[in-house]
Design a protein around this nucleic acid. Structure first.
Lengths: 207, 207
DNA sequence: CGTCAATCGATATTTGCGTATCGAATCGAG
DNA sequence: CTCGATTCGATACGCAAATATCGATTGACG
């Protein structure tokens, strides 16, 4: 188990391991990297490396202890105090994200949602109340919000982003189609659906 | 302009160039790679390489012709006949994707949406009719569907995927959290929101 | 007309990540 | 107890993409 830097690509695979391990029947107490790789379509060496970064190792000829792996993975993601998060832009996409993403499994707590549209302000999305986006700055400043999810239109995204980072947000999950400018210490994670369509489109055209 | 293989990472940046160029005032007739890189936060060499893959080059001391670049980019994505696409799983996420993704800008046409839930079958999402997922196979077979968007729960995803590929789909845009197994010639593009949360969570924890 | 600065495009170099290889450890069978 | 099969983990290699470097071209200006 190395507590150091874990590459992004590894981090993205870890949830796959976790959900796969949890899907195993209870009597499977150990599992080999070979078996995991086979099932998930990864390379066995990659599986060993990935698991080594969060867990304390397996035994030759036996494999890894399923329960210990699950424990280590869950601890890695869930550990520590929950990070407060807000979501801005409660159109269909913001609405869907709020309802379907498992924020809590990764140590996040959605504390509020914001929108500019008077028609949705005051309504609820699940347990979350939708507030006016004009209250965003004050709210974040007071609540120690660390993650901001941006699901607004492109033309509002940079403003919202500035508000979030100015009020102390340290990471932005950006669903808008533009590149956000942020201070150096803020992590931007782009989830640009437009870019994905570009890849798919190009792939089909060049067949 | 190289008509050859364009790497995935480049393809994902191309839409950014396009939307930035379109946002420029009309009187900006030429622009340098340096300026674009500055604005979008890329490296200038990377911008030149990226643009070289779809456009026919700029001139030293002047830069690229804005209009020509926009034309080339749009032609690259929009060219050819529209590819038919279907979306399966009309929960909040499928609903949001259908309404907000600019499928048409990338040569896709959403021909239908599917769900397993009797309560939503028969309803409409924008101009799209929601059909029973049991009709998926026949529909795709008849309609020459090339792209399938999977926004179902994880436990249904593999079944849906099999149906899609069996009926001729060549690319899958996968929003479920599991790894799909597909024939070799089918492209899977994973848009795993869970994996993104993992990266964000890990980043905040290791501060 | 000649010089300088800006910019492009081609060719290295570097870096990050995936993959292969190999020795060491462990368990089971004979 | 010994041998062989399996699996782990460390090191070495390879590839693809990002970045650096450099010469070539163009326009501006004196």
């Amino acid at each position: 188990m190395s507590k150091q830097f874990i590459p992004k690509s590894t981090l993205q695979r870890l949830p796959h391991y976790l959900s796969y391990l949890k899907s195993l029947p209870a009597h499977v107490s150990t599992i080999s990297a070979t078996a995991i790789a086979e099932e998930l379509g990864y390379h066995q060496v990659q599986v060993r490396k990935d698991l080594a970064s969060v867990s304390s190792g397996g035994r030759p000829k036996v494999g890894y202890q399923t329960a210990a792996l699950i424990y280590d993975l869950q601890r890695y993601f869930g550990r520590g105090i929950s990070d407060n998060a807000v979501i801005v832009g409660m159109g269909p996409l913001g609405y869907a994200l709020t309802l379907t993403c498992e924020f809590s499994a990764f140590g996040f707590r959605i504390v509020s949602a914001f929108d500019f549209d008077e028609k949705v302000i005051g309504r609820r999305c699940g347990e979350i109340e939708i507030l006016s986006a004009h209250r965003l700055y004050d709210f974040c400043n007071a609540g120690g919000v660390r993650l901001g999810v941006i699901a607004t239109h492109a033309d509002l995204a940079q403003d919202v982003c500035d508000t979030l980072t100015d009020s102390g947000a340290l990471a932005i999950w950006n669903f808008s189609s533009i590149r956000l400018k942020v201070p150096q210490d803020v992590l931007i994670f782009d989830q640009n659906l437009t870019a994905s369509l570009a890849v798919l489109s190009a792939h089909l055209k060049q067949l």
